[in-house]
Every structure is written in structure tokens, then in C-alpha cells.
Write a protein that binds this DNA or RNA. Structure first.
Length: 505
RNA sequence: GGCGGCAUAGCCAAGUGGUAAGGCAGAGGACUGCAAAUCCUUUAUCCCCCGGUUCAAAUCCGGGUGCCGCCUCCA
């Protein structure tokens, strides 16, 4: 079986064949650091995180690069508004980015180039484009001549005539052609600036990616990714810049993720209908968001709502319950044996192969999850109600779980111990987000009233009380205690091995 | 105006020619002192509508309808 990916270039699925067998050079467009990340950014980054994890699972040696755009008009505007330096804004939001995305369990890229650290490479690239007659300088600005690049529009399926007809932007008089775009922008007094052959200025938005991709990964990438909104003009322009110079394809495969919608409309800064990652993480654990993203295909739009998050949480709970049981078996001293070779457990035994089959089909995480749930049902049949006394079942259960664990890992799920997932309140999370909110001047929706819940010591004491009541068959008292805790957001669960507890929401 | 995508049960969501995965919610049963969890059974005679191709279509073709995205900074 072969991995196939949907290539935006050509709009179809193709067998995945990297330039060098076994190696994948991947560049994903990162964020412009002028504000906190929203869940749209989260989706994009989770999508590519899963792609990287899967490619590695498949045995590829992946070099993953993702940039920070740390200089641009929006950063400068914000800096002016706050009366601080642009680099300070960039620094603040890069830190915030890590704060949010490390919690999401996103792999750190192997290379994380920043535009401001590649000015010489950018200037050099612009210089060569000018020398090649592909670009021209006017009053300190440098523009790319779109008409001089025959392939313009091949990624987005546009042609230059239609683009002109549909142009909604005021034409800059200094451009030779309305379609031309800036490679280098001259700076106004007080703006961040770097020296260049055309005077003081800063890079245009698109050129940094061309320069950085070329420097760190070479002329042709295996995968170039980003959100759907980057197809035009960003990636189209990158192609013009890079291929205009090298004459070789910028990327073999172009992968673009779909949007997060709110009420069926694209979530975006300009529409104002967005939630920051931070707000969301104040209310649900990072895994819940990851599960939510993984339950749809990465190219489909997904509608974000309280309900969809709640459903994601319910589904994820089911998976964590399996992990909880595995931890229970381990704690009881069981060691993995093997899954019984009978048809009843075929879904479990076949899970790794089915998972790969689904993921090979353009990273179909939704189908892959379906197979994992099938496997979980089979695995639950092996679950011992008391691991300490059912040694054989416990050993078989552990064997089954061991087969699934790496697959969950590919999706970045079940990263926490189950005890933590079920028993950790999110008080600490609220504190973190509130602190950062103060720093960045961004409001954060209050999380659930986690502070009202009883702590572990208190809960264990009540469990002991209830145990005593049950021992003397005083079920009215036992039920009263359980209901009381239930009302406080704590769920008690009895089993042969004893009583355990979980926070409900 | 140009280009592209989507429409599957109460909700979410896979499925691109062979007779509807999975999750959530719901119903019944088993287990349990009772719950919860778990297991078993069950919930779309049918995949927006109308034509067509085919032995066979949710899946292909044509025509509608509805929704969305890009064409402007944007994951």
C-alpha cells in the first residue's frame, strides 16, 4: 500500500513520492506574530503536526520547518499603538505561541526560521530576481513582475485576465502592472528597517518563505503546507519568486487545511468571530481540541461550537477510559502477553494495519479514529474488572493496549496519564491564561468553576465514609454521599477493585 | 463577474461503482445493592432534488436547489 496525498497543485490525490527516498523536506507557513493564536491556527498546526507524526510513523526521515513572520505591517501597527518596538511585539507573541502550542502537544519543528534573521538571504534573493529581469525597483520598493512568469496562477487555478477583472484593490501607481507584488518595501521614518541596495526597508510578506525554504531545505520541498487561505496570493507568489529564479518546482506536494467555522462562517480576525486558543484551553483540555480536529478530515471545514466540543470530549473520555484500565493493569503488576487469536478480537489485532490504510489515504484521521474505536470495543471485552485477581486478562489487555498506544500517539492523543486527565481540575489552567491575558491585554472567558470542587483528600475521605456505609449495608447513606459528590462535579465508580473517582466536566 | 468546495440518521462524521464505518445522543438487555463504566442488541430500505450511463451509483455524467470558501491582510 502506498501513501497518497491530495495535491492542491492539480487538485487531486497522488501517490506520495519524495525527492529522496525515505526523506521528507516539509515547510509549513507559520504565524505572523502580532496577536494571540486562535483556534484556526490551532487546527492548521494540529493538522500538520499529525502529518509529521504519521510520516515518521511510516518510517520517513522528516525535516520539518515552520517559520515565524516576525516583521510586517500588522506588527508595526500594533507596536505603534502600544508605543513599543516591533521586535517586542514579536517576542511577546512568539512566547505566547509556544505557551499555547506546547500545551497542545505540538512537535517543535526541526527548523524555525524567522524573517528578521534572514534579511541577507532575502536581500540576495531580491537582488538576483532584479538581475534576472524578474523584478524591478521603484523609489526604494521592489516589485515582482507577474507577467514575466508564465506559470502564474497554476496553483490556485486562476489566470491573470480573471485576476485583473476581479481586482478589488486600488492600483498602486508605481507598479508596472496591477498584479505585481512587493518583494521589498521601503520604510517610513521610525519603522524597523534594514539596509539594502534600494535603501532602508523591510521584506515583503511572501519573499521570506522563498528565501528561508531555499536556505534550509533547498530548491524543491517535498511538502509545502498551510491554510487554504494561503493558496492565493501567498503561495502563488512564493512559486513565482522561487521558480522564477530556479526554474525548478518549489514543492512536489502542496497541502492545505480547511477552515474552522463559527455558525457555518469562516472564523477570522477580520470578521471578529474568533476564539483564541487560550480561551478555549481555559475550558477544555488540549486533547479534546485535538480529538475534535482529528474527527474530521483536515481539508473539510469544521464547525466549532460548545456542542461539538462536548461531543469531542465524550468521545475522548471513552479512549481515556481504556488508558485508565491499562494503567490499572500495570499498577497491579501485570505484564503484556498477547491478544487471543480468535475472531472476536480481530478489530483489535488488525487495528495497526487498518489505521495505516486509513492514514495512507490522504491522512484520513476520521476513518483512522473509526478503526481505533472498533479496536477499543474489542479491547474492552478483555478488560478485567479486578486486574489484581485476573492476571491473564490483565496481561492480554495490556498487550492489546500496547498495540493501540502508538496509533493514538500518531494523532497526538492520550498524552497525559488517565488519572491526570480525569482528576486534574483546570484551576491551574485558568491561572495561566489569566496571567497572560493581563500581559497581553486580551480578555479571557472565565472557565468552569473548578475552584468549587472538593479536592482529592476530601473526596478520598468521603469515599472511605461511603465504603463504611456500604459495609454495613447502609445504602441510603452510601447513595447520599455519592449524590452529594455528584452535585459537586465528582463521579464515583465502584468496581471489584474498589471505588475510583473522576471530575465530571 | 471568475475559480473552487460541500450537501450522508436527532447531532458530528467516514465512505469516489458492488448494495450505508465510527463517535455522541436515544431505546432494550446483561452486569451492579443502586449507579457509573463496560459488553450485547437496536436506531438512515437509503445518502438535497430531477434525469442519464451501468447487471449494479451515496459514489460516474448532465441539469437544478441550497450553503460555504478564494479572487483583499488572514491558518
Amino acid at each position: 500500500m502506498a501513501l497518497t496525498v491530495f495535491n492542491t497543485m492539480g487538485n487531486r490525490k497522488e501517490p506520495f513520492v519524495p525527492g529522496t527516498p525515505g526523506k521528507v523536506k516539509m515547510y509549513v507557513c507559520g504565524v505572523t506574530v502580532y496577536d494571540l493564536c486562535h483556534i484556526g491556527h490551532a487546527r492548521a498546526n494540529v493538522a500538520f503536526d499529525i502529518i509529521v507524526r504519521y510520516l515518521r510513523h511510516r518510517g520517513y526521515d522528516v525535516t520539518f520547518a515552520r517559520n515565524f513572520t516576525d516583521i510586517d505591517d500588522k506588527i508595526i501597527r500594533r507596536a505603534n499603538r502600544e508605543g513599543v518596538k516591533a521586535e517586542e511585539i514579536a517576542k511577546r507573541y512568539i512566547e505566547a505561541f509556544y505557551g499555547d502550542f506546547d500545551r497542545m502537544g505540538l512537535l517543535r519543528p526541526d527548523v524555525e526560521p524567522r524573517a528578521t534573521e534572514h534579511i541577507p538571504e532575502i536581500v540576495d534573493l531580491v537582488n538576483r530576481l532584479v538581475a534576472a529581469g524578474k523584478a524591478y525597483a521603484v523609489d526604494g520598493d521592489v516589485y515582482y513582475s507577474v507577467r514575466g512568469f508564465a506559470g502564474y496562477g497554476k496553483l490556485s487555478g486562476k489566470n491573470t485576465e480573471d485576476l485583473l477583472a476581479g481586482a478589488r484593490v486600488d492600483v498602486d501607481e508605481r507598479k508596472k502592472d496591477p498584479l505585481d507584488f512587493a518583494l521589498w518595501k521601503s520604510s517610513k521614518p521610525g519603522e524597523p528597517a534594514w539596509d539594502s541596495p534600494w535603501g532602508a526597508g523591510r521584506p515583503g510578506w511572501h519573499i521570506e518563505c522563498s528565501a528561508m525554504a531555499m536556505k534550509h531545505l533547498g530548491k524543491t520541498l517535498d511538502i509545502h503546507g498551510g491554510g487554504k487561505d494561503l493558496v492565493f496570493p501567498h503561495h502563488e507568489n512564493e512559486i513565482a519568486q522561487s521558480e522564477g529564479l530556479t526554474g525548478e518546482p518549489l514543492a512536489r506536494y502542496w497541502i492545505h487545511n480547511g477552515f474552522v467555522n463559527i455558525d457555518n462562517e469562516k472564523m477570522s480576525k477580520s470578521l471578529g468571530n474568533f476564539f483564541t486558543l487560550r480561551e478555549v484551553l481555559a475550558q477544555v483540555k488540549p486533547d479534546v481540541l485535538r480529538f475534535f480536529f482529528a474527527s474530521s478530515h483536515y481539508r473539510s471545514p469544521i464547525d466549532y461550537s460548545d456542542r461539538s466540543l462536548a461531543e469531542a470530549k465524550a468521545g475522548l473520555d471513552r479512549l481515556y477510559r481504556v488508558k485508565e484500565k491499562a494503567e490499572g493493569c500495570e499498577a497491579a503488576g501485570a505484564r503484556a502477553s498477547s491478544v487471543p487469536d480468535v475472531p472476536e478480537f480481530s478489530a483489535l489485532r488488525d487495528a495497526p494495519a487498518r489505521f495505516v490504510e486509513a492514514m495512507d489515504d490522504d491522512f484520513n484521521t476520521a476513518a483512522a479514529l473509526g478503526h481505533l474505536f472498533d479496536a477499543v470495543r474489542a479491547l474492552n471485552r478483555l478488560a478485567p474488572s479486578d486486574p489484581a485477581s485476573e492476571r491473564e486478562k490483565a496481561a492480554q489487555f495490556l498487550a492489546g493496549y500496547a498495540a493501540l498506544d502508538p496509533l493514538f500517539g500518531v494523532l497526538g492523543l492520550l498524552r497525559s496519564p488517565a488519572k491526570e486527565y480525569f482528576q486534574l481540575g483546570n484551576i491551574h489552567i485558568r491561572n495561566i491564561s489569566e496571567n497572560v491575558a493581563v500581559q497581553s491585554g486580551v480578555s479571557v472567558a472565565p472557565g468552569p468553576p473548578a475552584g468549587d470542587r472538593p479536592g482529592e483528600a476530601e473526596i478520598l475521605r468521603r469515599i472511605e465514609d461511603r465504603k463504611a456505609a456500604r459495609a454495613r449495608k447502609d445504602f441510603a447513606e452510601a447513595d447520599r454521599i455519592r449524590k452529594e459528590l455528584d452535585a459537586q462535579g465528582v463521579l464515583l465508580e465502584d468496581s471489584k477493585a474498589g471505588t475510583t473517582w473522576k471530575y465530571k466536566a
